[in-house]
Amino acid sequence: MRLLHTSDWHLGRSFHREDMLGAQARFVDHLVETVRAESVDAVLVSGDLYDRALPPVDAVALCDDALKRLAAEKVQVVVISGNHDSAQRLGFGSGLMDAAGVHLRADPQRVGEPVLLADGTAVYGIPYLEPEVVRTRWDLPERGHTAALTEAMRRVRDDLKNRDAPRSVVLAHAFVTGGEASDSERDISVGGVASVPMSVFDGVDYVALGHLHGRQRMSETVRYSGSPLAYSFSEEHQVKGAWLVDLQDKAHAEFVEAPVPRRAARIKGRLDGLLTEERYAAYEDHWLQVTLTDDDRPAGAMDRLRKRFPHTLALAFEPESATADDRSRTERIRDRSDLEIAYDFVKEVRGAPADEAERDLLHEAFESCRQAEAAR
């Protein structure tokens, strides 16, 4: 049984205002070609098919085209909703699509119902679980992602006990402890805790993870495929693609690289050096984030840079002589939750930190927004 594990397509997403739909369409072409060339039996898409709950029309059309083309190849397709997707919208018509071999799993109540492949392999789709939503629905004793996924996996194991399946596979959209994040994933922390231990997924033959945008091997049987395209400059060194997984006595996986429309990179230096030095010639066709270190901000810097580097997308200034924190904004907020960033914003614009009542109000607002989005 041969599987192709992919995730985090984020259809409809742009990259610093650059339209990525054409590049996403080329990835779909590559995906279908890989299915055909490698005799793939099932395609697993581990969440975040779209970039937002209400995707643009062109993104929906591309998703429709991708699923129809995969179904035409006579492969089984299993898709789960991610934290960027609207579970209700993505799951619409799932009962009808099952008959075509496209299995959309967006309802937490169905986590214990597998998709059975031709050889009897049981594939369980665990959609992104909003902890507060399933805590009430499942009457969980604790809050958080670990409690939610532990219960989901209990239901998976209970089903496996009563099923003579030769192998078992789980799709999940989560942040597993030890995973390496990039700047383009949306924070999913609850009470400051976003990650779940890998041991939650013990007992199955392969775990196809989504959410983190860099390919990662957490263990031989637990892997992230990463996103097929770079969606932040922090992904400049990542190799994009999908895992081709053979399920035999044990899972064996090799990585299939996806086409890259244009490489992303970050360069830093004084403007004159960037415009004249030969060592920067290799970046002339890249999407670039440029940080200028001139003591004085050069006039017309972006226009001058784009004469040599026409695909410069982001520009920052960090003078070499500055004594303040010289980290970029991205680096300063990398390990901070949305709530902590909001606290910092209040302090910056008002000159005084939020008091306890204001902090409680901000926390309530974030939780309300999170639950409202999950319920869409």
Rank of each mutant, 00 (worst) to 15 (best):
A322S: 15
A23C: 09
A99K: 14
C369W: 08
E284R: 15
D295F: 12
D187M: 05
V79I: 13
L361E: 13
R186T: 13
S368G: 08
H30T: 06
L54F: 12
D272H: 12
A100H: 10
V57T: 09
V222A: 03
L129P: 11
L67T: 03
P353Q: 10
A99W: 11
A253H: 06
V133Q: 10
E33S: 15
A258Q: 06
S86D: 06
Q238M: 08
E364R: 15
E340R: 11
S368F: 12
H16V: 10
V346N: 00
A71Y: 09
E113K: 10
R262P: 02
R279A: 14
T146C: 01
E38I: 07
Q238T: 13
S227D: 01
S195R: 06
E367G: 09
E318W: 09
E277D: 15
L49Q: 01
R332Y: 10
D119F: 07
R329D: 12
D294W: 00
R137T: 11
R263T: 05
A165S: 15
V102S: 04
A99V: 13
A181D: 05
M198R: 13
P55R: 08
E320Q: 15
Y231A: 01
V245P: 04
R308V: 07
T312K: 03
F27K: 04
H84C: 02
T221D: 14
R2S: 08
D85L: 02
V256I: 14
D41I: 01
R69K: 13
D85T: 02
P108I: 07
D246L: 04
L116E: 14
I267G: 07
V176W: 00
H84W: 02
L292S: 08
R137F: 08
M20P: 05
S189K: 08
P310E: 12
A61L: 13
G226P: 06
S234M: 11
D249G: 14
R327L: 11
D98T: 07
L244E: 06
A147M: 04
T150H: 10
D48N: 11
D326Q: 15
A375R: 15
D164T: 12
A148I: 10
F317T: 08
A174M: 03
A61I: 02
G241I: 09
R270N: 03
T146K: 15
H10I: 02
E318R: 14
F175L: 07
G125Q: 02
R89H: 09
K68D: 13
W287C: 01
E33W: 11
F309V: 02
P319F: 05
L362T: 03
F255Q: 02
S227C: 03
R110H: 12
V111M: 08
T293S: 13
V79R: 00
V43L: 07
D303C: 02
K240A: 04
L90A: 00
V207N: 03
D295Q: 12
D65N: 11
E113P: 01
A165G: 05
D205K: 03
R370F: 10
D48W: 00
R154M: 06
S337Q: 04
R327Q: 13
D8P: 05
R89T: 00
D335T: 08
D360G: 09
D246I: 06
P298Y: 08
